[in-house]
Design a protein around this nucleic acid. Structure first.
Length: 488
RNA sequence: GGCGGCGUACCCAAGUGGCUAAGGGAGAGGUCUGCAAAACCUUUAUGCAGCGGUUCAAAUCCGCUCGCCGCCUCCA
């Protein structure tokens, strides 16, 4: 049984799809007017993992993630850059893909754009006007909040309370200050589409109603986004959708928490944000992904270099273990050697997937799932320390590796070879040596070691270490790797 | 002002009624090593912001207090 926290009910609920075995899921994407920051990455990754896990659980998932490609911010940006609004949208859509691809965020099944759904949007607005939920004024169309009795049920707000403490500026043409635009008349020179109310463009919330209904139907299972979308975006979306169809819109509303800097929400307006791009200049995408999954999706995450370094160290622990596993296969000893550790690993392996699923079933608890992964890693290392051999040992190690990969594939981490991980570190840590340089140093040191000239050998070691390269002497030679700087 | 959330070890972070309070990082000691690294072992919260209450039993439920944050305006 899976449980998910539903914002609408304010508690965890059992996940029961509207149609057995199938899940329709819609997540709010981005407005394409600028580069994405790490907060956008969190949301994208959270819903990417949710989608992957649901698919792993055997659901047939249809996942929709939209692009808002027309809005005030895009129009303003176009003026700034001196290009057309659709060129802005096109450019930042590409940039979005560049970042998300690097972060391992899979494409949604359908990625609709607002401007490709103008007829559907107009139909819905018209329907709302006809049913008396909306009214037109000077080419604008507003949704009349008072007409929808359940308004406020998602964000747990009361219309009267909001009016009392309203900070919104009053627009005399609205019947109620909380009324929101479904359709906006366009000003001279602005992009526009013909409509029964004159040339204009869609309001922000209506596109999601149009696109989700078109691609998922009038009622669907999951709607997600950042917690800052609960009000007003999702509240309005819910109101206009249910008013229009007369049916429940979404069964489970899922919202991810924010990323904070110095405890404050990261946001464009505060200017305290980091773009995905600048972070990926210093850390491998997998590190960012791991970092974001190491905290439960609804909790805030404090962003810092230190946290990313810790995530990097954790990942390195995984890859180091995989290297040990590879070394074990190379040795290929086949004398059976039963041990208490063998038994213990066997038990851990048998229980692992159950624990992993239990964690993920409980509102996608990736932090706990990672905890189980590291339990298995420790158990595997303990076993490898016994210098195991024999077919049974080999079988257990194969299983260990496969289970780690399987769990990793659901989170879309652990998908590199250790060498590739090391290469990535060479890059992000900006190591000033080539691999050939390092091998040459190792050769020199090896000569010194053969002569038992320990001080010369240690000089080489220290020289490399100063540049972030660690040497490891093993039975069949010396290997090297990039050192993880675990703290400051 | 209205609504909501959070406060768990040196740091990050799971756990939301009942076995010894996960996991990662850091520190200390040890095993291993020519020296290292990695790994492993031991160790670091008789206690989960504080105070009261409910209960056979609470970090977990209730109340109050303190501190921090979010939404109420575009925002992932």
């Amino acid at each position: 049984m899976m449980r998910v926290y539903n914002t609408l009910q304010g508690k965890k609920e059992e996940l029961v799809p509207l149609s057995t075995g199938k899940i329709g899921m819609y997540a709010c994407g981005v407005t394409v007017y600028d580069l994405c920051h790490i907060g956008h990455a969190r949301s994208a990754i959270v819903f990417d993992v949710i989608r992957r896990y649901l698919a792993f659980k055997g659901f047939e998932v249809k996942y929709i993630r939209n692009f808002t490609d027309i809005d005030d911010k895009i129009i303003n940006r176009a003026k700034q850059e001196g290009i057309s609004w659709d060129a802005v949208a096109g450019k930042y859509t590409e940039e979005y893909y560049r970042d998300m691809d690097r972060l391992g965020v899979e494409r949604a099944d359908i990625e609709p754009k607002a401007t490709e759904h103008i007829p559907e949007i107009i139909d819905i607005v018209k329907g709302l006007v006809d049913q008396g939920y909306a009214y037109a004024v000077d080419g604008d169309v507003y949704f009349e909040v008072r007409k929808f009795a359940d308004y406020g049920k998602l964000s747990k707000r009361d219309v009267e309370d909001m009016l009392a403490g309203a900070r919104v500026e009053v627009d005399e043409r609205k019947r109620n200050p909380m009324d929101f635009a479904l359709w906006k008349a366009s000003k001279e020179g602005e992009p526009s589409w013909d409509s029964p109310w004159g040339p204009g463009r869609p309001g922000w919330h209506i596109e999601c109603t149009a696109m989700s209904i078109k691609h998922l139907g009038e009622s669907f299972d999951i709607h997600g986004g950042g917690a800052d979308l609960i009000f007003p975006h999702h509240e309005n979306e819910l109101a206009q959708s249910e008013a229009y169809t007369g049916k429940p819109f979404v069964k489970y509303w899922i919202h991810n928490g924010f990323i904070t800097i110095d405890k404050e929400k990261m946001s464009k307006s505060l200017g305290n944000f980091f773009t995905i791009r600048e972070i990926l200049d210093k850390f491998d995408p997998e590190v960012v992904r791991f970092f974001l999954l190491s905290t439960h999706y609804r909790s805030p995450i404090e962003f810092s270099d230190e946290s990313l370094r810790e995530a990097e160290a954790s990942l390195d622990r995984y890859y180091t273990t995989i290297t040990r596993i590879e070394d074990f296969f190379k040795e290929g000893k086949d004398q059976p050697k039963p041990s208490a550790e063998e038994k213990s690993l066997e038990e851990t392996l048998a229980a692992f997937m159950g624990k992993f699923k239990e964690a993920m079933d409980d509102d996608f608890n990736t932090a706990m799932a990672l905890g189980h992964i590291f339990d298995l890693i420790r158990e595997a290392n303990r076993f490898l320390d016994t210098k195991p051999s024999g077919p049974k040992a080999k079988d257990l190690i194969v299983k260990t590796r496969d289970l780690l990969r399987r769990a990793g594939s659901i989170l879309n981490i652990f998908n590199k070879l250790p060498d590739v991980w090391n290469d990535a570190l060479m890059q992000t840590k900006k190591i000033p040596y080539t691999k050939a340089d390092i091998l040459e140093k190792i050769r020199q040191r090896q000569e010194a070691r053969q002569k038992k000239d320990w001080s010369a050998a240690d000089t080489v070691r220290k020289e490399l270490e100063a540049q972030g390269i660690i040497l490891e002497d093993k039975k069949d030679g010396t290997t090297w790797k990039v050192r993880i700087n675990r703290q400051g």
